[in-house]
Structure formats: structure tokens, C-alpha cells
Design a protein around this nucleic acid. Sequence first.
DNA 1: CTTCCACCGGAAGTACCGGTAA
DNA 2: TTACCGGTACTTCCGGTGGAAG
Length: 403
Amino acid sequence: MSDKKPEEMLDSIFDRALSGKHILNDNHVLSSEYIPEKLPFREKQIVSVGQTLAPLLKGMKCSNLLLYGKTGTGKTVVARYVIDRLAQKAHSNNMKIRVAYSNARVSRTSYRVLTDLANSVDLSIPFTGLSIGEVLQRIVNKISQDGYFVVFVLDEIDYLVKTHSDNLLYELTRSSDRLSPGFLCLVGISNDLQFKDYLDPRVLSSLSEEELVFPPYTAEEIRSILLQRAEMAFTGGITPTAAINLCAALAGSEHGDARRAVDLLRISAEVAEREGAEQLEEKHVRIAVQKIERDRVNDALSSLPLQAKVVLLSILRCGDDDSSCSTGTVFEKYHNLCQKIGIEVLTQRRVSGLLSELDLLGLTSSSVVSSGRYGRTKKIHSSIPIQLVREIFSEDPVLTPIL
DNA sequence: CTTCCACCGGAAGTACCGGTAA
DNA sequence: TTACCGGTACTTCCGGTGGAAG
């Protein structure tokens, strides 16, 4: 990066921060949690969600709701926008409406999803130890005891169903029937359009009383969203149009993913600020693209469990002599490496699983190929440079003998 | 056409961990 | 203390399979 001494680098970083030359005056506007005052191109969806939830303000029950659409199409932001307003209205009218939000992929387990729901009704539960049924019972008791009307937004619901089954959803829909005073309304958000196939029909019919599809943004819409954010975020009303166009083109237009486009704009601005540039330019965007990718790989590599690291090293060993890198050969190398550093050797089945996980993380790319009589296997290919892997893995003393 | 390799990948089960309730 | 809980990491078992060789 730079061959300056650390203290000099730190000095210049601080000096730059002091000098008051900022490109951004509010980087919160470009953060992923930010909910704008206006959500362009999503007016219809906002109204729709609002109409579905409105009966609650009259003290009546409302339908469950399911929001579909690919990533970055505004599902989460619309849902949060509406429940925030709903909570405000309810608060100013002294109504017992509570809203809860949980992202299944962030919370990871059924238990923690329920914890999120419990917190919204001022119920604290231990972070482990209870059965799911017990937690649910406590929540149900609390809700009907206090007569709450609760809207529960369950984001990335498809992740929950795919990794754990639809059991929790079934219990949730069932328990909302058991509430005599009080009410629980579920708003599911799914990135996967086919996820309905995984659901039990009873859950499906209950959950999707109403459905709403979010189409991808067009390239032009993404550009306009970025411009809107930029006007708020950048100082002196200078909107770097060329750079924004590039952001929209690179991140958004392909799949209509607005979140990625906004992320890219934020990182680009940070790059420019760090450089001490006067203005955000296209070159900063290009650097940001690389930085995002590099950070992603770094994070993935350093958070890998030990066994996965050894498997990855085995793949890199194969790459040297031939491109014939299959599960069998990787397992052989892996076996050797394990013995060299004296750790437990896992089964081939597990190694095969680890290979799939590495693939999912985008650290390798593999495909199943059949060579007729010579069997059927995964051909694995790693795209990350060995040098980088060595650098990051060297933090782990166990691995040093085989780097 | 059938055979058969070298795996794939689902399912069920085990061991362990950090925790709670009674 | 004992019984039990859910989550994670892994094993064991096994039916399934694309396509070159025969």
C-alpha cells in the first residue's frame, strides 16, 4: 500500500481529518440502515403495505403479508419505513401497537429470531437454555396479557426456512390464532421467488394472505436514487454526476440492486476522502470496486475455521502440478497436511461438505463433472492468489509448517 | 445397449458446549 | 444437583448418477 512508517501515515490521516476538506457531510445517508424520507419508485408498495396494516390502528386484526423480490429491490426499506410510521402513529395516539424486526440471516437461529420478537414487547428471555416452545409460550402470554397488537417483520425468511425448516413459521402462525386479547401480524420478506415450494401448505396459506412483488429497479431508477442520496450526502451540493453514473452502471443496472449501488457510492466516497481528493471521481469508484472485493475475500479467509483453512491449502497444493483438482486428490493432500501439523483428519464426506462451503463463499469455483468410467467428481479451482492466503493464514501458528 | 467408477449429497445420529429450570 | 434445551461440527450410512468404456 504505502512504504511510509506507521506513525507518519497516522499523522497524515489525522491531519487530513483536521484540515476540514470533506467530500461527505453526512455519510449516514449512504449507510445501509438509512431510511430516506422519500422512497422513489416504491410509492405503490408503500401504499399497499400501509393499507394491509392500517386496520391495526382501528384496533382490528389485519392480514399477514409476504413481500417478494430480489436483493436490493427495496423490500426491507419499504417494510421498515411503513412500520416506523405505524409505530409513530400508534405512539402519538397512545395505542398498544408494537413493531418488531428480525433478519433471519443475521440472527441465524430460530431462537434468536424469537428473541428479537420478545424484545419488542419488553420481554427479556435468556439467550439460551429454553426450548423454542417455551420461548414462544412466554411471548404469547406476554402479548395477550398486555393486549398488544404486534407487527413482526421477518426478513430473509427464505434463509430461515432453508436452513432450519418451516417449523418456527408454523408455530408462529398457529400461536397468533391462540391470542385472544392481542394480535400478531407477520410480514415475511423473501429474496427467493421459489421459496413458497419449501413451505407447508397450511403455513403458506396463512402467511400469504396478501402478497406483494417488488420488481428490480431499472438502471435509470438506480441512477436517480443515487442522485437523491448524493444530494443529501455530499457537501456544497456538488453532485459528482460522472462517478454516480459509473456506480449505477457497475453495481445496479445488472440486477437492479440498489443496495449494492449505494454501498459502492459510499465506499467510493470514503476512498476519495482518504485520498484527500476535492471531488469524487470515476477513478475512486474503480478503486472502490477492487477494495470491496478484496475486503470480502480477506474477511472470508480470516474467519474460516481451521479445518476449512487446511482444505483450502490442499486445493492450492493441487493447482501446482495439474489442473486436475478433484475431491479425491484434494482429500489425499488434505490427509497429508493434517498429519504434518498433527490435527484430526476429517472424513471425506465432511471435506466434500467443506468444499461446497468454500464454493458458497466464493473462494473457489467448482462444478460436478463426469468422466464416464473414471467416475464423477467435483473439479475445484481456486481464484485467490496463494500469496494472499499465505499472508492471512500466517496469523495461525498451527498452519505455519505447511505454508 | 449395459456397466461401473468415483464420487455426490440427503438423512439420521452422536458428541459436545454453554446455558436454564426446578 | 439433574434433566433438558438448541446449535454446531462432525460421522455413518447409503441410494443416486453422467457418461466413457466395453
